[in-house]
Computed example of a mutant assay.
Amino acid sequence: MVTRWILICLALLVPFTAQAQEERLVRLAAPEALHQSGLLKHILPRFSLKTQVRVSTVAPGDPADMVLGDTGRALFEGAGQVWHMTVLSQGHAPTQRFADWLTSEVGRNTVTSFAPDGTPLFTQPQPRAATVAAVTLDGDSELGQRQAQLKCGRCHAVRPEDRFNSIGSTPSFMVLRGFPDWAERFSVFYVLNPHPAFTQIADVSDPFPIDRPSPIAPVEMTLAEVEALLAYVQRLAPADLGAPIQSQ
């Protein structure tokens, strides 16, 4: 009778045990190249031994909690590419624990210590030099020069020969051309103070409030003329501002 009761209790516990194991399972999708490297066989048992969380690998495209591949957070580099992690099961505690382990010092060291032939096969992802696209300004620079003289010349020196014909506190176009962000400054000059108070860009700027009209004759331009202005400024030689001041 006692034996029968024990068997019944064990039978009742089986579903709960299976459910508990399922809840502590992480399904990891990884391509064949990563399997072939042997890395997963190296790191997964070590993670499971430490945390009692089991990781089961599935094929790419199958239901998964986490994916190792080309997108997501960069983890390590080797086997011909940088491997990234994407967590699909947000809020799933075992998956989050695996993700935290992979990005921890212990996890990173476990990956980089994989050296089946004495030489580590994986490293931390190396920083890549940023590719800076060349800015091409194809506006009409001749139109830009005319607009600069007509619309901007009352405050700024817009040509080297005009450097003495400007408001003293207003930087010349040549000085502005020497700033690293000169293109951005000229692209949006109409929203930089004090320009909004007297500048109107067609189809961009809001009309002046009736109770606050422009204090001077408005500067009115189109976006095409702004592009032309940029093309003109690009032609200018930056002013030589000398070496930075050195403090003692």
Results as ranks from 00 to 15, higher is better:
residue 114 F to N: 09
residue 2 V to L: 14
residue 238 P to K: 08
residue 16 F to V: 15
residue 140 D to H: 04
residue 246 Q to K: 06
residue 167 I to T: 15
residue 171 P to D: 05
residue 53 V to L: 11
residue 197 A to T: 14
residue 244 P to C: 02
residue 163 R to H: 11
residue 48 S to H: 08
residue 247 S to C: 09
residue 65 D to V: 03
residue 111 V to R: 00
residue 79 A to F: 01
residue 177 R to W: 05
residue 105 E to G: 04
residue 67 V to S: 09
residue 161 E to P: 00
residue 122 F to P: 10
residue 36 Q to L: 12
residue 73 R to T: 13
residue 237 A to V: 10
residue 4 R to W: 09
residue 78 G to N: 02
residue 215 P to N: 03
residue 11 A to H: 02
residue 148 A to W: 00
residue 29 A to G: 01
residue 226 V to C: 03
residue 132 V to P: 06
residue 175 V to C: 09
residue 227 E to S: 13
residue 159 R to C: 07
residue 195 H to T: 12
residue 179 F to D: 15
residue 124 Q to P: 03
residue 214 S to Y: 01
residue 22 E to W: 13
residue 228 A to N: 10
residue 135 V to W: 11
residue 95 T to F: 01
residue 42 H to T: 07
residue 207 P to V: 06
residue 12 L to P: 04
residue 60 P to T: 12
residue 197 A to R: 13
residue 56 S to N: 08
residue 212 R to D: 15
residue 46 R to F: 10
residue 96 Q to G: 15
residue 53 V to E: 10
residue 85 M to H: 12
residue 127 P to M: 07
residue 91 G to L: 04
residue 79 A to H: 09
residue 19 Q to F: 10
residue 33 A to Y: 11
residue 233 V to Y: 01
residue 41 K to V: 02
residue 40 L to P: 03
residue 126 Q to V: 14
residue 180 P to H: 06
residue 222 T to M: 08
residue 194 P to D: 07
residue 235 R to N: 14
residue 239 A to Q: 12
residue 58 V to G: 10
residue 99 A to Y: 01
residue 162 D to C: 02
residue 4 R to P: 05
residue 173 F to I: 09
residue 83 W to N: 00
residue 213 P to I: 08
residue 148 A to T: 02
residue 192 L to K: 11
residue 66 M to L: 14
residue 99 A to L: 06
residue 99 A to E: 01
